[in-house]
Amino acid sequence: MAQADAQTTNPIRSRLGAYYELTKPGITGYVMVTAGVSAFVASRGRLELTLAMNTIAGTGIATAGALTLNQFVEREVDTVMHRTQGRPLPTGRVSPMEALGFGSALLLGGLIYIALALGVLPAAITAASGLMYHGVYTPLKTRSYVATLAGAIPGALPMLIGWSAVTGSLDSGALALFAIGYFWQLPHVLGLAWILREDYTRVGFQLLPPGGDRSIGLQMVASTAILIPISWTPTFLGFTALPYAVGATVIGGGFLATAFRALREMSDENARGVFFASLLYHPLLLFLMIFDTLRLLMSAA
């Protein structure tokens, strides 16, 4: 009897796991974090728990839907690239129509949730993010390096979702956080695209700029260098103070150093260094924002 129950349970768990995998939980989770931090900074540390939960949940549901739909759209490409062949659609664990229905339900549900709980502006930004991701970035991937520049826009829009959920508008603070998110993604994607260049070439993805290794390295350096002064803008606008600005400069300098190494020699090791530095940089920067926002709130109390 127990064995029969286990045999029934395992397929169910496997099925649920496949649907969970479709949502790219790592990326979805981090998008939820960025929206939540943006809302927290916009509130100057006075973010209500209900608003925080609605912002994080709504953003997560819509993002999960958009990423599921991306796997539906790119299901044939995913069967060719080595790193994606184990995904639910290439392996047949989920059918294309099931993925389409699941993703559509999540995206639509997330948009309705955000509109009702947070307002029209956050919902409109969420919809724009989905349209930009599927209507511009995805089709451009096989046509032009512009895809990388365009794809960073929907990647940074969750910062505006969180900010507008609190303020009901988009002001200089919102644009500052958006700019940080945008320029952070460029070296992140370039590093990953270099590491996966053979897979990307196999399916015709053009996420690396023309001009060879030096052009790639120069764009890594340029985007990480621009990040440093842009990262100071929350302090200039009064949302953070000197401790944040100093910390942002230190970690920005470390990030920039990895980009210069890649410029001197574009290799798998150095590209991986840029990529992993990007994985550390942005979470650390968000932590510094939270820390200094709380510090200013407590000092004013």
Rank of each mutant, 00 (worst) to 15 (best):
P96M: 09
L242V: 15
I161T: 06
S278R: 06
G217T: 00
G173R: 12
L106A: 11
T91Y: 05
T148S: 05
Q85E: 06
Q7K: 10
A66P: 06
F287Y: 07
G130K: 12
V37S: 00
P96K: 03
V73M: 05
A300V: 08
G109M: 08
S231N: 09
M266E: 03
A42L: 05
T28S: 09
A262L: 13
P243C: 12
S299T: 13
T201W: 05
F183K: 00
G101M: 04
T126V: 06
I161D: 03
A123F: 02
I226T: 08
T201A: 13
V221G: 06
F287V: 09
V221I: 03
G211P: 00
L131D: 09
S14N: 10
L131C: 15
L170I: 15
T91S: 12
P158C: 11
L242A: 15
V31T: 11
A124K: 10
G109K: 05
A179W: 00
A127E: 00
F72S: 07
V77P: 00
H134K: 04
L196M: 15
G17W: 12
L131R: 12
W232V: 02
F183M: 05
A35C: 06
L186A: 12
H282T: 06
S43D: 03
T23E: 08
A6P: 08
A271P: 09
R295V: 04
V250L: 15
A105Y: 12
G155M: 10
A156H: 01
R197H: 15
F291D: 10
G247Y: 11
L100D: 06
P90I: 11
L218T: 08
P90L: 11
F72G: 02
P139K: 07
P158H: 11
H282W: 06
P243N: 14
R197C: 14
